[in-house]
Write a protein that binds this DNA or RNA. Sequence first.
DNA 1: GTCTATAAGCGGATAGAC
DNA 2: GTCTATCCGCTTATAGAC
Lengths: 222, 222
Amino acid sequence: MARRTDITAADTALNIRREAVRLFAQYGYAAVSMRKIASAVGVMPGALYHHFPTKQDLLMCLLSEHMERLHIAWDTHKADCSFETLDASAQLSSFIAFHIRYHIALPEDVFISMMELRALDAGHFAKIEQSRHAYEQIVKDILMRSPEQPQMKIDDVHVTAMAILSMLTGITGWFNQKGRLSEDDIVACYCRLGARMTGQEPAHTQNRQFDTHLTPSLSIRS
Amino acid sequence: MARRTDITAADTALNIRREAVRLFAQYGYAAVSMRKIASAVGVMPGALYHHFPTKQDLLMCLLSEHMERLHIAWDTHKADCSFETLDASAQLSSFIAFHIRYHIALPEDVFISMMELRALDAGHFAKIEQSRHAYEQIVKDILMRSPEQPQMKIDDVHVTAMAILSMLTGITGWFNQKGRLSEDDIVACYCRLGARMTGQEPAHTQNRQFDTHLTPSLSIRS
DNA sequence: GTCTATAAGCGGATAGAC
DNA sequence: GTCTATCCGCTTATAGAC
């Protein structure tokens, strides 16, 4: 067969990233060899090194691009729901809905971004950790505005923020697209839980309506 | 130096388990070689195979013993706090306190039990997964008794149980023994959060007293 | 029960042809 | 941009001496 000119270098680089994400998520970074990635992509091992100088660089690329996409998606979501005009209670529900939908859509990226931080060398780790902290700060900033809301009562902003984030991120561990609960059901459940965790009475939250849907831009993946 | 008769085979096996837990927690199962474990223990690599036939068996031993100790500790805690006599609300606080204290005391065992499940082969995985489900069922059983409690309101037992467990297990990711909050502070915060997540009004939970301390048996480690 | 020594193969990464 | 071929250190695991 003649050389396929319909497959570009950019395609191969994208295939490498996609297969690497899949394999790292399933088996872990250390357990996946460059040979296995090459085999999944359909190229010889040496070809990978034309696109990524080392295995470590490949991992760092996956994690940094994931964090970058996450922040961009959040900024887009903020703009689309006029986030700054919402009160703290509505902001929290808006964040919860965004976080759940984004994480359910990209479970493998999320998974390796949690699990493989320790596989990064010091410099790379610091960069990703900074980006993670910035994301956590979103929740803390929302909770710190709670004193403006008479129906919100928070004992400890830091603990409550970490509890909410852990609770949300844990969803990817058990959620099944074909299971009993739809994505909308999950979002509704967790918005209620988030409201309760921030001291809002069930009576106040039962009948509130939130714009909990993501903007279409989220579904675009590089 | 003559052969040290004060070091027995049981000591070596214990040292292997301890160093393996530490190294697996820090770098991950796949990233840690038998050579590194042997070096940490202070023996030659071949000696490890006298105690564990394969690396996989060593991992399975660590995980199965962790789950076994966890269930035994829970049974002991249940007996010591007369668990069956408590109402559902107090049972939940009792469980939360137990879970937090146990997990803070053994963060490395907990960590590898979450992270290295995928490193187990199919048969071993099934056994550990069964034990994990049994532990999750503890929370579901408590929540399913909530209809007896007029102050408890739960939308979905499964979701609420998973949310509580994720929230609790996430603590090990950020808790620092020397940080701003003591273990007691954390337990108090999370008992409050757990109460709120199960629909209990802040006014109801603010002044309640729970026996949130673990029994002494927990501090014993094989 | 631990040692020395080694088998047999996989690991990341590179050089140079095409 | 991908291939073939290869370097060489490290991997799990075993055999037999002590």
